[in-house]
Amino acid sequence: MKFEGSYQFPKSSSEVYSYISDLRRVSECIPDLKSLEIKSEDEALATVRAGIGFIRGDFNLRFNVTQRSPHTNLGYAVHGSGLGSGVDISITVQLEDLSTGGSTLSWVADTKVVGRVASMAQGMISSQAEKIIKQFFECLSQRLR
């Protein structure tokens, strides 16, 4: 499943980059975060409460920053498991300064969900995954205003 979107910020791309390349600050925007452990500049472990409908439970996720091109590009990989399921999300972020000031953040998230959640809630998973990812970027956009 591929999701994408873009946001405009009054801040410059370097300011946005500085914020979103900091795993601790980015993690604050993960929906339903229960715990967070920063392992290094490029790795964090998180537990989130997630689910669809009545299928709810904890997911243990590992966040890695996979690509850093200052002011222009960032890549994240999220790998996790829970509820008899696995999730892998590959996120790429592109930043661009606007001639009118501020910047644009464009994101693409390639998401793969396997296991019980995927099989039991096949019809709902796409919209739910999109909802969670959008919540995350909405949160970021709020903080960067």
Partner: peptide
Amino acid sequence: YDQDGNIYGANFMD
């Protein structure tokens, strides 16, 4: 099954 091998029709919901 989808391309990742996720089963659909896994219980009486589906």
